[in-house]
Each structure stands twice: as C-alpha cells, then as structure tokens.
C-alpha cells in the first residue's frame, strides 16, 4: 500500500462515521432506550407503588438481586382476550391496507400519468387534509356517521331508508376512519415510484404486442412493487397499533391491541402487562419490517 493510500484509508473512517453516526444516535435515543425501558417493565410484577411495578434489581446487604419474571408473557397466553386482540388488529390492519391499496393505486397511477401543473394540484389535494388536526377529522367523521348524523339525515329525508343505518361503533366506521387517514401514506410512495416508470418500457411492451392489460400486469405492476410494498408497510404497521380511530369510531365492538394496551395501562394500571403487550406487538411487527427491508435491499442492489 502506498503512503498516499494509507493516509486515505486512515482518514476515511472518520469522515464516514460523521455521516453514519447521527442516525444511530437517533435510533438509540428514540428507539433502543425507550424500548429497553418498556422491556424492563414487562419483566417486572405489578405492585402498589410509585411507579406501579416491582424494581428490576435490589441492592440489600451487599447483595445485588435481579428480579426477572416472564409471568406477564405467560399471562398473555392464558387470557384469550390478548390473542383475539392481536388477531383482530392484524386482520383489521391487513384489510384496511388492502382497501387502501385498491383505492390508492389508481389514484397514484392517475397522478403519476398527469402532466404539468395539474399534477402538483392533485398531489396537493392528497396532502391537504393532513394539514388539519387528525382528531378534528375523526370527529368530523363521527358527525357524518352518527345515527342522527349528516349521512343518515340525508338518506332519511330522501326517503331511502326509514330508520337510521347504524354505522358508528361498528368495524365499518373503523375501516372508513383508517382508510381515510392512512390513504396518503400509501399514495405518496406509490406515486413517487410510478412517476419514475420509464415510458419507453411501456412503448417497448406495446411494440412487442402487449395490450393495456398485459402492459399493466407484466410491466407497470411488477416495476411498482417497491412502491406498493413501501406504501403497504406505511399503512399496515401503524394501523396494527392504532388506538384513536377504533376508540372513537369503533366503540366497544372493535377489539384492537392498541385499545387493550391503553386499558391495561390507564384503567388497570398494570404497567408490566401493558409493557408485555407492547413488546409482543413490536416483535410481531418486526416480521413484516424485516421482510420489507430485505426486499428494499435487493431492489437497491438491482438498481445499482
């Protein structure tokens, strides 16, 4: 190795670290440490104390004692409520993601194919609702969906129905709220992907004899898979832990793990069980997140 090379090799890590370290500090501060605390609490036992759980370690008479209990995790298994809540959350998240995809793909495709100022306008319209408070928008939906809400009033005054359709406090309302709230998170990454689609590939496919359906299924759709997956993850992951929408629109009928967690934490004041619920949820979500990253990595390699 020449002296010059050695100098560069010696200096590079420093500059490299400068770029790489900030994200890791961020992750450490806002993910690893909070998660470690939650995990620690999940290994404790509930106690009437401040904070309301047993200490992780005790130092009495020169003896350091760690108190680790997996009882909370076992407890999650004994009560079917938790299992049902997980399944129900995953199901609701999966179905809403699918609805978002079915509704959002054509919108993203349409915007990506639009030219000029109209395109920016359409993008604005997608983003605009998120400029008002999320809670205000959910309350607005309550006003629409209530038994004496706007939709039912209109339907009844038109004579379409005799008595109000019950929409509030049903899963239907939860889906409405979730799809409405999370649609932009699917549209935007998908749009960003579709807008890059090389029109010449579609022309080449046409030239080789492909009609519109074949072009979509064999060129556009597979090439937009990165955007589809990114968008779906951005919807699926937060929806699994969603609390506000099922609480406000779904009432007691909708069982979701976010609501269970809230109940354990604030109503039962059982912090250890609540922490165990959160930890398990995270582990469950780690599976799709890992799959997504593997896919992204492969994509990045392929596009190199």
């Amino acid at each position: 190795m020449s002296p010059a090379r050695r100098k560069i090799a010696w200096r590079l890590p420093g500059q490299y670290l400068l770029v790489v370290i900030p994200p890791y500090i961020w992750l450490l501060l806002f993910f690893v440490i909070p998660f470690a605390i939650v995990f620690k609490i999940s290994l404790a036992e509930s106690a009437i104390a401040q904070p309301p759980y047993t200490a992780f370690y005790e130092y009495v008479e020169d003896v350091l004692t760690f108190r680790v209990s997996f009882a909370n995790y076992l407890f999650l298994l004994t009560d079917s409520l938790y299992f049902d809540a997980y399944v129900s959350s995953l199901r609701i998240a999966a179905i809403s993601t699918l609805i978002c995809l079915v509704v959002g793909y054509p919108i993203a495709y349409g915007i990506a194919r639009t030219q000029g100022p109209l395109q920016s306008l359409l993008l604005m319209l997608v983003i605009l609702p998120s400029w008002t408070s999320f809670l205000v928008r959910i309350y607005a939906w309550m006003g629409l969906l209530r038994n004496n809400g706007i939709i039912n009033s209109v339907l009844m005054s038109l004579g379409v129905v005799d008595e109000p359709i019950r929409m509030m406090n049903t899963e239907f309302a939860v889906y409405i709220g979730i799809v409405y709230t999370y649609l932009p998170f699917l549209i935007l990454p998908l749009y960003a992907n579709l807008v890059k689609l090389d029109n010449r590939l579609l022309e080449a496919a046409t030239d080789l004899g492909a009609g519109p359906v074949s072009r979509f299924l064999r060129i556009t759709l597979p090439l937009s898979m990165g955007g589809v997956i990114a968008g779906c993850m951005l919807v699926f992951i937060p929806v699994v832990g969603e609390f506000v929408i099922p609480e406000l629109l779904g009432g007691s009928e909708t069982l979701m793990i976010g609501k269970v967690l809230w109940g354990e934490f604030f109503n039962n004041r059982d912090w250890p069980v609540a922490s165990a619920v959160a930890t398990v949820m995270l582990v469950l979500l780690l599976i799709p997140i890992t799959l997504f990253h593997r896919y992204q990595f492969r994509e990045m390699e392929a596009n190199d």
Binding site: L201, E203, A204, T206, D207, L208, G209, I219, L223, N303
Partner: peptide, 20 residues
C-alpha cells in the same frame, strides 16, 4: 392499425429492456 398489432418491431435507442 395500433402499434401492438403491427408486424413490425422496434429497437429503442435506450434498448428499453425490461429491468425486472
């Protein structure tokens, strides 16, 4: 006669090979 029904084929300058 639309492009996908013509018995002609075109090689694009950028080749336009399907990357996937």
């Amino acid at each position: 006669l639309p492009a996908n029904q013509r018995p002609f084929n075109m090689m694009f300058q950028s080749y336009a090979l399907f990357p996937h």
